[in-house]
Design a protein around this nucleic acid. Structure first.
Lengths: 341, 341
DNA sequence: AAGGTATTGGCAACCGGTTGTCATTTCGCC
DNA sequence: GGCGAAATGACAACCGGTTGCCAATACCTT
């Protein structure tokens, strides 16, 4: 039989249901749940019990609307299918979840426009964003950071908190490694022009090369995909170098494949050093020598920095810059220069 | 000088700002933007111009709260670092973005509990969900599907719309391939017990083997990680089989590494067939023969089915099941059985 | 026991849209 | 020119929480 009094309807319970059940005002319920110490302990326990009984789950939309905080953090990556970002994403996801935040993951498709419009979109629906390998200009990034809390990964813009992966110094390790193997003709296979990581690596590498009196030439740019490896490999062979330090593992693995097709032996005829130590770098053929860094941790740190920015602790210092150590992992793709023993 | 009239404040514009600028009611603005044909064309154009001028972006929270529709879709995957899901995620993301939806990606950590609680959470903040390789029981899944629109991927539960990747039939292809190479001792390296995909593959494989009069034994279960490859490889060697059909490429690649360590040659001593054709399957050593399927497309189809469910079109038929074709891709990890030519 | 302070709980406005209702306008038609 | 129907726009309630403000209550002190 139909009844006018709201029975246990199927609609999810709200604070009003709890309030009615406990005989208090809705606002009291709200306070009991979000500002526990502003409510009588007994009342609070009654409310909590009722909430548990009703299987209450707060409506995040409503919460966001009224409080202005969404409890969500946007994570922007240029290419979601690039294995490099898997670990980063997992790091951010774990850290965000631990803090009770939701992750909004967006693939910006290597496009500065998509990146910018996404940021504008997220301005309303997220409390802050983590931007990996931004393709935006320094000015655009700085302007965006002024509008909403932001932490960048692998992008150094003064005034914007950042997690930097210290690949530049690793390129020096790679260079020394190659020099110690007798290589003197070395190329740097560059990434996209808009990638600051690529620029920073090249700068560091060129300087180190100069100090050591060897010559390193830059080739490229190459898109960060395995497919680009073919062009890159051909360019390297044509240039006559005996070793390559490659922008990232994706391209490096592509080069490995192409060199194999062309019957150019790695590392006997050509040594290859990648960067990132992505999934696959350890089981490609030959296994790739590469510059490895704690990517997942970088993701966690980025989130920590962002959350510290969102919820400032009295007396806490907010770091605005964090550098992740990087080291060279030598596997099978590097060996003595041709003609050396 | 201070002014009481709200000038161009920094706060993002709302429909009220637009309404004030146009001299109409806020509700008119709302209608003009969401139900364009219920408003005078001239008024609408004025409103649209004002919206553009103010750079108006609707507040998705408020929209969700009042309309009940969030414009977001949850995508649940068991392990975000499993390359198999990259393409799936990219597929869902592309299709969702094209339809103006937001993707909420969650890693359920291969846990049925995380999966269940995530669903409960998402019930409020998403309009529907895509669940890949669910670890939930049929009953739990059916119950969850009753509460919110859902499409599963690689999980067949009557009454729940699903995108199925036809790996079972591919196992038959793999079996025939191995038989044609002279193998008679074949093992199936099983995935997690809670994975229906694994069960379905085994069922299909066992039946096909029976028809063909060969014996196939099941080994495992093994966790879907490269690390499990070592145990799997050792188990395979110990069992004396000459070929393995493996639950997925992750385990298969791990096996390849282990067999190499143990100096067991692939494919001379042992043939390996993987499943999924993930990133890396083409450049591991040797390149992996595997069962490939259009994963990204599976993601797109799953989203299409979900959206069709959310926005039923008059006269449109809603497919509740879609099977993606799968075929065997032969590379270097399969060869003639030992002693055959 | 009375006065004071600290704590607690309720009211109501508000966040930014959506949507039902209804009065008004506009238009077409006879 | 006047009528009716359709189109249009304004009002206000509502979604589910948060929060400022104030009154009421409790507790403590002298």
């Amino acid at each position: 039989m139909a009844t006018t009094q709201a029975a246990a309807v199927d609609r999810p319970p709200t604070i009003h249901d709890i309030a009615a059940l406990c005989g208090v005002a809705a606002s009291t319920v709200s306070r009991a749940l979000s500002t526990p110490d502003r409510v009588n302990i007994r009342t609070r326990q009654r409310i909590e019990a009722a909430a548990a009984q009703l299987n209450y789950i707060p409506n995040s939309q409503a919460k966001a609307l009224s409080s202005g905080r969404t409890g969500a953090v946007g994570v922007l990556v240029p290419d979601i299918t690039n294995p490099f970002y898997f670990d980063l994403i997992r790091g951010t996801q774990l850290q965000l979840k631990a803090a009770g935040y939701t992750q909004l993951l967006v693939d910006t498709e290597e496009s500065d426009e998509v990146e910018a419009s996404t940021m504008e979109q997220l301005r309303k629906s997220a409390d802050g964003i983590v931007v990996a390998a931004s393709r935006l200009s320094d000015e655009a990034l700085l302007a965006a950071a002024a509008k909403m809390p932001m932490v960048t990964v692998n992008r150094d813009v003064p005034g914007v908190p950042a997690v930097l992966i210290d690949t530049p110094s690793a390129t020096t390790q790679a260079l020394d490694h190659l020099i110690s193997l007798g290589h003197t003709d070395i190329a740097y296979m560059a990434g996209p022009l808009t990638s600051q990581s690529s620029t920073r690596r090249w700068t560091a590498l060129a300087e180190a090369a100069k100090e050591r009196g060897v010559e390193v030439r830059a080739l490229g740019p190459f898109a960060p995909k395995t497919q680009s490896g073919a062009v890159a490999a051909d360019a390297a062979v044509h240039s006559g170098v005996t070793a390559c330090i490659v922008f990232n593992d994706l391209i490096a693995i592509g080069m490995l494949q192409r060199l194999r097709e062309r019957s150019i032996r790695v590392p006997e005829d050509m040594s290859i050093v990648g960067c990132d130590d992505i999934f696959g770098a350890d089981f490609c053929n030959p296994p790739l020598s590469t510059m490895a860094s704690p990517i997942e941790q970088a993701g966690r740190v980025a989130v920590s920095m962002l959350l510290a920015q969102l919820n400032p602790v009295a007396g806490g210092v907010t770091r605005s810059r964090s550098v992740m150590p990087t080291h060279l992992t030598v596997r099978g793709s590097t060996g003595p220069a041709p003609g050396m023993h």
